[in-house]
Simulated scan of single mutants.
Amino acid sequence: MNSKDLKILNLFKFDENLLISYSINLLKIIIILILIKIIISIGSSVIQRFFNKQKQSKFGFNEKKADTLSELLKSILRYVMYFIGIMWILEVLGLSIKTVIAVTSVAGVAVGLGAQNFIKDVISGFFILFEDQFAVGDYVEIDGLSGFVETVGLRVTKLRDFSGDLHIIPNGSIVRVTNKSRGNMRALVDITISYEEDIDKAINIIKDVNEKMKKEFKEIIEGPNVLGVTNFSDYGATIRVVAKTEAMKQWGVEMELRKRIKHALDENHIALPIPKRIIMNYKKGETNGN
């Protein structure tokens, strides 16, 4: 075997060793990723079981508070494990911790703005939690976006609106919050009757409906009460009914009130207004009403 053949053989051996080294490192990275995923899954399950027990305990957290803390801790767990995983993988690739820190310091200048936003989101998230501005399950309006809170995470808050759209809002951008789930809510129903009908009779019929509703619905805190005639429109007189209900129960009460009032008015032959149009026939001088 000549010297040229020996050089080729040595090159092949070097490439073979390099390939084995890369394969081992790739296998280690895959194992690290699997371990991280398993730890996150197990940790999330433990957190969920803990807070489920808290919700059932007399001295534990209420349901909304427990769900909020559960989602927050899961979010923190994910971020911590992602960081550990990245550091572990960099070490497998041959980068020492000192090198990683040095590179991170240099890169920190370039991503400083992003890091500032991240820190702002995290700090805002903690303030939202500790000030109890809202919790998972609350119906809120945040800067013009409304929906039920699905997640209060370390960095973002997720809202699900009635159409099913999911709004993801960075915590640091939240300026104004309207929580519609705290305290009693107002149920409001407007009923317009025709001008030809007896308003006093209609009001008495609505009052009877209100009394029955109050007895049957535990979620009604106060009322329903007839405020009186609040408007005269092109079609008729508007009678307003209001009630106070438990949080998030107002819509159901409003729909039931409308249905019952409509049935009661129909039974007593109180007509709701129908839009009318007057057509003038100038040629014949006749008037037709439709």
Rank of each mutant, 00 (worst) to 15 (best):
V152Y: 03
K259C: 11
V226M: 12
G236K: 02
D190F: 02
E256T: 05
S41I: 05
I24D: 05
V253D: 01
D138K: 01
T287R: 05
L73T: 10
K7W: 08
E196F: 08
V149I: 12
G164K: 03
V175H: 05
S75E: 07
I47R: 07
D67G: 11
V152P: 01
S3M: 13
W88V: 09
S70G: 13
I76W: 02
N231W: 06
L145D: 09
S3T: 13
I36N: 00
L27Q: 10
P273D: 03
L227K: 11
A135F: 02
N290P: 12
L9S: 10
R176C: 03
N62P: 00
V156Q: 05
N25P: 10
H167P: 14
K65P: 08
N210I: 00
K212D: 15
V136N: 04
F50C: 06
I203P: 05
V226S: 09
L227W: 13
L69S: 12
K53Q: 15
T192S: 09
S124E: 10
P273W: 00
T287L: 09
D190L: 06
L257H: 00
V152G: 01
I261Y: 04
Y235R: 14
N171I: 06
L129F: 01
Y282T: 08
F130A: 14
N52Y: 05
K215A: 10
V253Y: 03
